[in-house]
Amino acid sequence: MLAINNLHAKVGDKEILKGINLSVNAGEVHAIMGPNGSGKSTLAGVLAGRESYQVSKGEVLYKGKNLIEMAPEDRAREGLFLAFQYPVEIPGVSNNYFLKAGLNEIRKARGQDPLDAVEFLQLVKEKINVLHIDQSLLNRPVNEGFSGGEKKRNEIFQMAVLEPTLAILDETDSGLDIDALRIVADGVNKLRSKDNAILVVTHYQRLLNYIVPDFVHVLVNGRIVKSGGKELALELEERGYDWVTDLAEAVHN
């Protein structure tokens, strides 16, 4: 589904990703872990099409297509979804209005008819219970005045409605208490199927207790320095990142 080959990316003159190689197949959950500043969020941003990053080298193939050349909206229409680390507040635009507009664009790309207001509301009601979101929140402006936990749940709710084939969760666990974490993880797990894949970007291991990954990759200083199974996350939790950071230096020198 996703093939990242020797990906280099920079912000301005600063190179942040320095040759990422990663392959994700349908049905898999991959976790990208790493210390602060290692490039985790940059990788998520590059994949979603954030324009502040320039890809200087390498390629990203998504469903066999060159992802880097696609506009962010086209990526979304092809089934890619980014759960934001910092969901944006948009005063004056209701959550439902914007989500219906997005969903119908994606349905159009899939060759499906757009949903009318009633059908959309039905879909929303189905998904909303899973995430314990107050329905009144959805008539409010996007994320405006939402608590940190509400914002993150809203991200996963959007994911549930849009049903992506590749979901990227960028530090979705940050700022969540344990109850909210469970709710969010439940939502994500409901989406898991043999047809789609999930990329979980996180600093801490605890989210991975709930969303159990098939593979764990450790990103340090713009490179994946170690890959393994779910037990690697536990090892990181126990030994900290210094251990792999040293490893990275050893590998590089």
Binding site: A48, A71, A76, G102, L162
Partner: peptide, 15 residues
Amino acid sequence: DEEQVFYLRSRGISE
């Protein structure tokens, strides 16, 4: 706000 523009686009809405 370009961050808001990006947020909407990332959900499939054209620029």
